[in-house]
Structures are given as C-alpha cells and as structure tokens.
Computed example of a mutant assay.
Amino acid sequence: MDALRSQLRGHHATYLELTRDVDVTAALRDFVDRGGDHVIAAGGDGTVHTVVNELMQFDPGERPQMSIVPLGTANDFAGTLTIPEEIEEAARLFLDGEAVPVDVVQIRGEGIERFYSNVAAGGNCVRVSEELTDEVKARWGAFCYVRGAVGVLADMESYRLDAEIDGESFEQLDSWAVLIANGKTNAGRIEVAPLASPSDGMFDVVIIRDGGLMDMVEIVSGNLLGKFLECDQVIFRKAKRIRLQSDPPMRFTLDGEVIDKEPIEFEVVPAAIKMFVGPDFTR
C-alpha cells in the first residue's frame, strides 16, 4: 500500500480500508458528493467484488470510473483485464491511460440482487471455496484452490438442473457445476472460460455434466491442455441471460462471496462501469 501511496503523491486521494466496521456505501456516497470520480480497488477479487457492487448502486451518469491494483491471492479479474501485478505499472494505467466500458453481471432470486464482474461458480465449486481457510491461502497462495479441490473431487455432489439460456431450454440435466463467466479465469488463474470477454455484452455459460471417474479425468486434462470447452461433459453457450433452478438448490460463489440462497436469473449489464485496463486487453 505504501508503494501505491507513493505513486499517488501529488494527487488528491482519499483512502478507505475495507473492514467490517466501515460503511462503504456511505463513504462512497460522500466521496461522490464531494466530487470524487475515480475509485481504485487495491486488493484481490473480493475487494473488486465489493467495489463493483457499491458502484452499481449509483446511476450510470454519476457512477465513478474504476481501477484495480492487484494485491490479492489470485487477482483473476485483473488478469482478464491484463493489468500488471507490479503496483507502479498498474498505477501508470490509470494515471496516464483511458478507461473503457466493462460489463458486469446482475443476479436475482428470492431475497437476492447482487452484481459481479468475474465468475459465478455454482455447485461443487462452492464446496471448494469453503475448504479455503486463511491458513490454506497463506500457505499455498494461488495454488490453494487446487489444494481445496482435492477433498471435493473424491465426493462430487450431483445437481438436477433446469436451465433457459437466451430462450434455449435444458431440462433435467445431471450436473456437477455451473460457471457463468464474464472473465476468463477463476480460482487462481484457472482458465474456465477462455472465450469470455467483459466487453462483448455477453457472458459465457459452462455447464459441467455429471459423470464417472474417466469423465472427471477428461475434464481436468482438457483444462490443462486448453481444450476444456471441447469435452463431452461440457455444455458451452454465450448468452445475455440465463434462468436456472436445480435439485438440490445450487449455491454459488460470486468472485469469492458465497450466496446461500439459490440465484434464479443472471443477466449481463453491458458497459456498466468504465475501468482502466492493461495494454494487451482486447475489446
């Protein structure tokens, strides 16, 4: 953080540490009312997720632009935006660059309305996330997600899924997991949606069907070889909207935030937030 403060020396900046005692909504409203127009999320995907949800509470005309300085364990969405991990280089993007419109995804359900920027991962993916204690994250770094999957792979739960993807219906699908991706990677730079782009007005839907041990081997090896979407157990679609329900109800993680209630509908919000991106980002 000291390195970031050094980069911002000479610029008027307000610093806010995201603790449980902080009213982020009130702080950002005060910031905007005082003329603030640029929010920097200095942290990991969880920090980015918090900031995105807060910014989406503003009307589009007053919504601040956003930058990411990747300081977290995985920094998946920063990777999709090709933001350098070096603080000085990340800062140079928003000090000298120009923001571009980036999509986010809105979810709805009974008692739920949230937004996310990277990946919603449902089904057995949630069980992996719940394996990740702070100690495991500290010891394994980005590889902690692989470490967390070891126990889950031996006991995969099946979900019977009904889905409607931009009008196309799927009924009674036995599935292991559903990924609704705005970004390319999840869980420590694992490429789950290689064709995803957060600037195309669509998200990528990946449904992993239930199967046996060899199906699991094919999926894992396909991911390692960059042919994940070609696996027989994978259903892939690009879409703007999906409605789904499952038995048992499928929980999701939204960029690390576990949603205990079942989301019913996902819909893309095109060009929702202007963000500063890396030089290799392709719109």
Rank of each mutant, 00 (worst) to 15 (best):
Ala78Pro: 04
Asp45Phe: 08
Arg63Lys: 07
Ser67His: 03
Ala41Lys: 00
Arg34Leu: 07
Glu85Asp: 13
Glu89Leu: 15
Pro70Gln: 04
Glu62Leu: 13
Gly97Asp: 05
Asn75Gly: 05
Pro60Val: 15
Gly97Ala: 10
Glu89Ser: 15
Met66Lys: 04
Glu85Phe: 08
Pro70Arg: 03
Gly46Cys: 11
Phe77Leu: 04
Gly43Arg: 01
Glu98Phe: 12
Val32Tyr: 07
Ala99Leu: 11
Asn75Ile: 09
Ile87Met: 08
Gly44Leu: 10
Val105Thr: 14
Thr47Pro: 06
Ile40Trp: 00
Glu54Pro: 03
Gly111Cys: 02
Gly72Arg: 01
Pro101Met: 06
Val69Met: 02
Pro60Asp: 12
His49Asp: 09
Val52Asp: 10
Ile40Thr: 01
Val100Phe: 12
Asp37Ile: 11
Gly43Phe: 01
Gly35Pro: 12
Glu89Thr: 14
His49Pro: 04
Asp59Cys: 10
Gly79Ile: 12
Asp45Gln: 08
Pro60Met: 11
Leu55Glu: 09
Gly109Lys: 08
Gly109Asp: 09
His38Asn: 05
Gly97Arg: 01
Ile87Val: 15
Glu98Pro: 08
Arg92Gly: 07
Glu54Leu: 08
Pro101Glu: 05
Ile87Leu: 07
Ile83Asn: 00
Ile107Phe: 10
Val52Gly: 09
Ile112Asn: 05
Val69Ile: 11
Glu54Arg: 04
Gly43Leu: 01
Val102Asn: 02
Gly46Met: 08
Glu98Ser: 15
Thr47Gln: 04
Ile83Pro: 01
Thr50Met: 11
Val52Ser: 07
Gly109Thr: 06
Gly109Arg: 07
Asp96Tyr: 11
Glu54Lys: 01
Ile107Asp: 10
Gly44Ser: 11
Val32Gly: 05
Arg92Met: 12
Ala99Asn: 04
Glu54Trp: 04
Pro60His: 10
Glu54Gly: 03
His38Pro: 03
Leu95Pro: 06
Thr82Lys: 14
Thr50Gly: 00
Arg34Tyr: 06
His49Cys: 03
Gly79Ala: 15
Ala78Gln: 03
Val102Trp: 00
Thr80Ile: 10
Gly46Trp: 06
Asn53Glu: 13
Ile83Phe: 01
Asp76Tyr: 09
Val104Phe: 00
Pro101Arg: 01
Thr47Asn: 05
Val69Pro: 02
Gly111Trp: 04
Asp96Ser: 14
Leu55Phe: 13
Val69Thr: 02
Phe94Lys: 01
Asn53Pro: 11
Gln57Tyr: 06
Ile40Val: 15
Val100Ile: 15
Ala91Val: 07
Pro70Leu: 02
Ala42Asn: 08
Gln65Thr: 15
His49Phe: 02
Gln65His: 12
Val102Asp: 02
Ile83Asp: 00
Ile40His: 00
Thr47Asp: 06
His38Ile: 11
Asp103Met: 04
Asp37His: 13
Met56Asp: 09
Gly79Phe: 14
Asn75Ala: 03
Phe58Thr: 12
Phe77Cys: 02
Val100Gln: 13
Val39Met: 05
Arg63Thr: 11
Thr80Pro: 09
